[in-house]
């Protein structure tokens, strides 16, 4: 019996292997966490094929890949609608698909959302680097984006072949009219901004710039005004009001370099010398993985208790209970 594998016929725009919880424990040496940008869709894809929900799977960005499966198994596609086809026949997303050896899966450009996930029964079995299979493409940690003719080994599967489905109302909702509501908390450096600018941040509409990717979501919107702490400070912080002595960058932080806010996400720098006045709630990060350039973000201010409720909801919505048997 041959080992299960996938051959890459077309790589797509930037398709990577991702895994949860990501590369944990190496931020202090400069390695970002990595992992899937939309962990909710990622987990549902895994659950649909009978994997543990955090198993390594493929993340496809904006334009999906074309893959040949060299062995029979189960697959599922979730996240952005990339109109998947199996041997040129359209197939549904959000459901378990049984495939035969030699069949070809092709994803196109995303109609809504930005990232799709392809899970395969048994998971992707690339060698872990620093404890994780998650790929940090920019630095080539854990591998890099798929290339044509790459061959991916798959893990052993004990999936029974049950066909499962995620009902429409239990799927992550893509933005209506291109407007996303993003829950965020003030801090760590909100005291470096003028209080009026803190209010402006939560009142304004922010446009996602084209120069956005897994290393940061750049935003266009109103200008910020700074507080005394930013304007009158020890020289060691640097000359611009948004400069601070190099410090750790939280995942989801809204980093202010000059006047351009950049939301720091899964492949972003671990540290740096700019302030982070706000931080996106951990359970809202998946939405940033589906926001497309040109779409609008509105930030909704929440506190830690509300963030805890969102986490519980996020966890429940990426659990086996979400799935129906077909």
């Amino acid at each position: 019996m041959t080992t299960a594998q996938i051959t890459v016929l077309k790589p797509g725009l930037e398709t990577t292997v991702q895994e949860l919880p990501g590369r944990i424990g190496y931020l202090g040496q400069g390695f970002p966490i990595s992992g899937p940008f939309d962990a909710r869709s990622f987990r549902l894809a895994n659950l649909l094929v009978g994997n543990r929900r955090d198993t390594a799977a493929l993340e496809c960005q904006f334009l999906g890949p074309k893959l040949r499966f060299e062995s029979a198994g189960l697959i599922a596609i979730t996240g952005a609608d990339m109109r998947p086809k199996l041997d040129d026949t359209p197939i549904p997303m959000w459901t378990t698909i049984a495939i035969a050896a030699g069949q070809t899966l092709e994803l196109s450009a995303a109609l809504t959302g930005a990232r799709s996930y392809i899970a395969v029964s048994g998971g992707i079995a690339t060698p872990p680097v620093l404890g994780s299979r998650a790929v940090f493409h920019m630095a080539g940690v854990g591998g890099s984006a798929l290339k044509r003719d790459d061959v991916l080994q798959l893990g052993e599967s004990d999936a029974g072949g049950t066909i499962l489905h995620v009902a429409q109302e239990r799927r992550p909702m893509m933005a209506a009219n291109g407007i996303w509501q993003i829950e965020a908390l003030a801090g760590p450096n909100d005291d470096w901004l003028d209080p009026a600018s803190v209010d402006t941040f939560f009142a304004a509409e922010w446009k996602v710039q084209a120069k956005s990717n897994r290393t940061g979501i750049r935003l266009t919107g109103p200008e910020f005004a700074f507080s005394a702490r930013a304007l009158d400070k020890d020289d060691a912080h640097g000359s611009h009001p948004s400069n601070i002595i190099d410090h750790g960058y939280p995942l989801g932080a809204v980093n202010l370099a000059g006047q351009t806010p950049i939301i720091l996400v899964f492949d972003s720098p671990s540290t740096g010398g700019f302030i982070n006045p706000f931080t996106v709630a951990s359970a809202a990060l998946w939405k940033l993985g589906q926001a497309r350039p040109g779409e609008t973000l509105r930030f909704c201010r929440i506190d830690r208790d509300q963030a805890a409720r969102l986490r519980a909801e996020f966890n429940a919505m990426s659990s086996p209970e979400v799935l129906d048997r077909v």
Partner: peptide
């Protein structure tokens, strides 16, 4: 202590380098 969202804390020891 400064909260960085719901999963991180910045602990500042001094204001200078």
């Amino acid at each position: 202590f400064y909260p960085g969202g719901d999963r991180a804390i910045e602990v500042e020891i001094g204001d200078g380098m």
